[in-house]
C-alpha cells in the first residue's frame, strides 16, 4: 500500500483521539442527564496545564495527569453551579467555556513558543513490523489505545453494570431514581467530573502529542465538535469512535489537500470540519423520533430533591 496513505491513516487516528476522549466524557455526563457545554473550555484548560506540567517536570505522565485533573476541577465548578446552586446548564456551560478560554490564555502566556518532547509511538517487536497493518494496528502512541479502551469501558459500564444502569436511570427519570433512593445529585457530580477529566485529557493530548505545543485557543472548536459527536452517536458509545474517525479523516484530508494545492483556497478547505459537523447534525437530527428515543429524557433539566 501507498506510504502516504498509511501515514495519512496514522495521523487520522491522532486527529480522532482528542475527540474520542472528550466525546466519551460528555456522553457519560449527558447520560446522567447533565448537558455540559463547557467541553471546549475544559479541553483548553487540560491542554495548557498538561503542557505546563511537562515543561516543568519533563514527565509526559505528569502532563496527562495534570491535564485531566485540571479538567476535572473545572467540571466541578460547573457541577457546583448547576447541581448544587441549580443554575441554568446551557448558560453555565457557556460560562465555563469563556472562563477556560481566558484562564488558559493567561496561564499559557509563559509557554507560547516552548517545545517539549512528543510522546513516542509504541513499537511491539514483530507485530509492529508487519507490513501495512503492523503500523496501523500496533504503531500508534499509547494514548490512542487508551482512548479506545476508555470508550469501550464506558460502553460496557453503561450497559449491563449496576452503576451504569443507575446512571442511566438518573438521566432518564430523575424523580423515580430519587424516589427509589439513589443519590441523584452525587451520581451526576461523578458523571460531570468524569466528563471533565476526559475533556482535560483530550486537551492534553492536543498540546502534548498532536501538535505538540501550546497556542492560544488551540482546540479550535474541537470541544464543540465533540458535543456534536455525542448527538451524531445518538448517545451510543460504539458510534463515537466511528464519528471521531470520520472527523479525524476530514481534518487530515483537508490538510493534505491544502498541501497538495488543488487550487481550492485554503480557507475553504479549513471550513470543511465545521461544515461537516453541521451536515452531520442535520442528517442525524432530522429524525426527531430517533433523537427523542435515544437522548436522556432529563437532559439539561435542573433537579432539586423535595424533602
Amino acid at each position: 500500500m501507498n506510504e502516504l496513505l498509511i501515514a495519512s491513516m496514522m495521523t487520522m487516528m491522532t486527529a480522532a483521539t482528542p475527540l474520542v476522549f472528550a466525546a466519551t466524557g460528555e456522553l457519560v455526563c449527558e447520560k446522567s442527564g447533565v448537558l455540559n457545554l463547557g467541553v471546549e473550555g475544559m479541553m483548553l484548560i487540560g491542554a495548557v496545564f498538561g503542557f505546563a506540567a511537562v515543561t516543568l517536570t519533563g514527565q509526559p505522565l505528569a502532563g496527562l495527569l495534570a491535564g485531566s485533573l485540571c479538567g476535572l476541577v473545572a467540571a466541578l465548578i460547573f457541577a457546583l453551579l448547576t447541581l448544587t446552586l441549580l443554575s441554568n446548564q446551557v448558560a453555565t456551560g457557556l460560562a465555563l467555556t469563556i472562563f477556560g478560554t481566558g484562564l488558559s490564555a493567561l496561564v499559557g502566556l509563559d509557554y507560547v513558543g516552548e517545545t517539549i518532547e512528543q510522546i513516542r509511538s509504541i513499537h511491539i517487536p514483530v507485530l509492529s513490523d508487519l507490513p501495512v497493518i503492523g503500523r496501523l494496528l500496533f504503531g500508534h502512541d499509547p494514548l490512542v489505545y487508551l482512548a479506545i479502551i476508555i470508550l469501550a469501558l464506558s460502553g460496557w459500564f453503561l450497559k449491563p453494570t449496576r452503576w451504569g444502569m443507575i446512571l442511566r436511570a438518573v438521566g432518564d427519570s430523575e424523580v423515580s431514581a430519587h424516589a427509589i433512593g439513589y443519590p441523584v445529585i452525587a451520581i451526576r457530580y461523578a458523571a460531570v467530573a468524569f466528563g471533565g477529566a476526559m475533556a482535560g485529557l483530550g486537551g492534553a493530548y492536543l498540546s502534548l502529542v498532536y501538535t505538540p505545543l501550546w497556542a492560544e485557543n488551540m482546540t479550535a472548536g474541537r470541544g464543540w465538535i465533540a458535543l456534536a459527536l455525542v448527538v451524531f452517536a445518538s448517545w451510543r458509545p460504539s458510534r463515537v469512535l466511528l464519528g471521531a474517525i470520520l472527523f479525524g479523516g476530514i481534518t487530515i484530508l483537508q490538510l493534505n489537500a491544502q498541501a497538495a494545492g488543488l487550487g481550492i483556497p485554503g480557507a475553504f478547505m479549513s471550513m470543511l470540519p465545521y461544515i461537516a459537523t453541521i451536515v452531520v447534525l442535520v442528517l442525524i437530527s432530522r429524525d426527531a423520533i430517533r433523537i427523542r428515543l435515544n437522548a436522556p429524557a432529563c437532559l439539561g433539566k435542573p433537579f432539586r430533591a423535595e424533602r
Partner: peptide
C-alpha cells in the same frame, strides 16, 4: 496580560449564575 480580561468575564458570569439561586429560592 490582556488575557486577564477574558478570565474576568468568565468569573463574573460564574458568580452571577451562582447568585441567581437567590432570585428563585
Amino acid at each position: 496580560p490582556k488575557a486577564v480580561t477574558g478570565l474576568f468575564q468568565g468569573i463574573i458570569l460564574f458568580y452571577l449564575l451562582a447568585f441567581d439561586l437567590l432570585t428563585r429560592y
